[in-house]
Design a protein around this nucleic acid. Structure first.
Lengths: 138, 138
DNA sequence: TGATCATTTCGCTAAATTACGAAATGAAAT
DNA sequence: ATTTCATTTCGTAATTTAGCGAAATGATCA
């Protein structure tokens, strides 16, 4: 049951400011190989640049710093020190994984389906559609 | 920009109780064609059955009722009156759509990418990796 | 070393969220 | 019509969260 990890990701994305941060990082092609003007790989925007983009502030605010670390704790972005700045990048793989989990929920397959009806705690004995349940749920 | 709709879905899924409700509905095959014991299409569990499964309570609690309507408001489930009970079912399509949005974020394609750098409000003038921005972000 | 810059931590306030029990509503059964 | 059952609404308490400014930390530069 990967529910534990996923609910943190959803919670992190549930804040509109954090969702905008993530969309901005997506636009910046973080986590994918992109060349910058000097021919090197562009590592991603600094925390300050993210903040500017989201709030218009010239310097990073404590609020955006906090949001960035929430996203990091949820496993959705990476934050790495480079000199005195912090470089932010999207953890694309995490998004792919959460997307797969959503599809699994949508399709009722594998990960989210019970092997047995009684797997569904704590009420026990799912009211399954197949009508094979001895004891009704409620 | 579908960000508005999606952030509500993420917020709804960010609560562990609601995520468990959704997983339970997924297991119950809601939204897909499943036969019940009398040969008809199983419509989904009642609100009370959902509550029993999640909390173990014999009757529906106001808390679960509230969570169900939060999920409905986020477009993730459908709730339909049938006699004196409310029947719950997953809106599978909504989950597929949110999953696609996550993949779009992961891959930096279409929906979440700016057509123009200046699309990214309110800071304006993205610090794009291509180095084609006149005015720096911060 | 001292100054400066980018970021984080701290203390706080306001607002939102979760949860619960009691009372109210809606629909069917007697 | 009254009762019964399933669910919702209401009022409220406890907890969490977002946001802000000031002070503290970490790292480079002069």
């Amino acid at each position: 049951m990967n529910g534990e990890m996923n609910h943190k990701a959803y919670k992190a994305l549930g804040d509109p400011t954090r969702l905008r941060i993530v969309q901005f990082l997506s636009q910046m092609c973080c986590g994918r190989a992109v060349m910058n003007e000097s021919g090197g790989v562009y590592p991603g925007p600094t925390a300050s640049e993210v903040c500017c983009q989201i709030t218009g502030a010239e310097k990073i605010t404590s609020t955006i710093s906090h949001h960035l670390h929430e996203l990091e704790a949820a496993g959705l972005i990476a934050i790495e020190r480079r000199g005195k700045q912090m470089i932010c990048s999207l953890r694309s793989q995490a998004f792919e994984e959460v997307a797969l989990n959503l599809q699994s929920i949508a399709r009722g397959d594998g990960t989210n389906a019970c092997a047995e009806a009684s797997d569904c705690e704590p009420g026990g004995d799912c009211c399954t559609p197949t009508g094979e349940v001895e004891q009704a749920c409620c």
